[in-house]
């Protein structure tokens, strides 16, 4: 939904908005080339599939997060909600005589419900999104710990595990599910009136309100989508690990927000979109994967990701401003 490439400027000057728009793809291409040159294992089929499979879980979380950030909010609870939903789903799956789909639905539904609560706090109680979801994060995480008391739920039905470890037409299931989620969200964001409302609310809430858009409904849906994504990712995670424990969603929030930001969605809302997010998450995963392949101690992943968030936002603001400056006329 960004400014499409503007009219070719006079002379040989570079059209900055065009450069800005495709900058993420340049970065991705550069990164792939670099990794392929320094590590022979990088471009192998297995490693590529591996990266994409890892990326798909983060991408599902990031798609939900993108929608929240587009409304000028933020959801800090996704990692904890993933844990909580995974445990709830796992518990239901372990009950005797309960069909598998009920377990999956319980997990996903738990995520959506927590998202709904986040949405109510932000839209109706009008808490700052940061506070509402930060509180939710500790509540969800704490409940998971209290409920499991250090135990791990493991060993699930093979048919359930298929969604995390199986293949369809040689493509890992998580990638397929991620693609489906992407397709649904792409449709919502670009082909539905709800998508328009989400962008409008994020770009300028007061204008959206005075244009007759239902702000509360729009915000509640955004947070519910985010929670639903966390629930779904939680179930996929449990299926893949064949276990559910209280540390499931630890250290997922950081790469997800980094991916959204790298994907060009503005933390101020209204600008960016889910396509950029997928690229952003893949870039993040290549960096993490690359650090592993290069034998860099994993303790460095935190500082690197933190730095990437900051640098990405700085570059994004520069790029946006430079592109905008070129557009301004007398």
């Amino acid at each position: 939904m960004q400014e499409t490439a503007a009219k070719k400027p006079a002379g040989l000057r570079l059209d900055l908005s065009f450069v800005y728009r495709f900058s993420r793809i340049f970065v991705l291409a550069l990164l792939v080339t670099f990794m392929a040159l320094v590590t022979p294992n990088f471009l192998t089929g297995t490693n590529t599939i591996n990266i994409l499979r890892q990326a798909s879980l983060s991408a599902i979380l990031a798609l939900g997060e993108t929608i929240v950030i587009l409304t000028a909010g933020i959801d800090l609870s996704i990692g904890a909600v993933l844990t909580m939903s995974g445990i709830v789903g796992a518990t239901v799956l372990k009950m005797d005589g309960v069909p598998l789909w009920v377990g999956v639905l319980a997990g996903v539904g738990c995520g959506a419900l927590v998202g709904l609560l986040n949405g109510l706090m932000v839209a109706v109680v009008r808490l700052p999104a940061f506070i509402a979801t930060y509180g939710t994060m500790w509540i969800a995480q704490g409940l998971a710990v209290v409920f499991l008391r250090g135990y791990i739920i493991y060993d699930f039905d093979k048919r359930f595990r298929f969604i995390g470890t199986g293949y369809f037409l040689d493509i890992p299931m998580p990638i397929i599910i991620m693609a489906l989620v992407f397709g649904v969200f792409w449709f919502i964001m670009h082909k539905s009136t709800l998508g328009r409302s989400l962008y409008a609310v994020g770009a300028r809430q007061e204008t959206a309100r005075l244009s007759g858009i239902n702000i509360q409904r729009t915000l509640i849906l955004a947070y519910t989508f985010s929670g639903l994504c966390a629930g779904l990712a939680g179930m996929l995670f449990v299926a893949r690990l064949n276990a559910a424990e209280a540390g499931l969603g630890d250290s997922l929030l950081l790469p997800v927000i980094a991916g959204v930001v790298l994907g060009g969605t503005s933390l101020f809302g209204g600008e960016g979109g889910i396509s950029g997010t997928v690229i952003g998450v893949i870039i993040m995963m290549i960096i993490i994967n690359g650090m592993n392949l290069l034998g860099i101690n994993s303790v460095w992943q935190g500082p690197v990701q933190g730095a990437i968030i900051i640098i990405a936002v700085i570059l994004d603001q520069w790029g946006r401003r430079a592109a905008a400056r070129q557009q301004v006329g007398g």
Partner: peptide, 11 residues
Amino acid sequence: EGLALILSVAE
């Protein structure tokens, strides 16, 4: 209040 400046004319 009248516009969302960062959105397009169409939006």
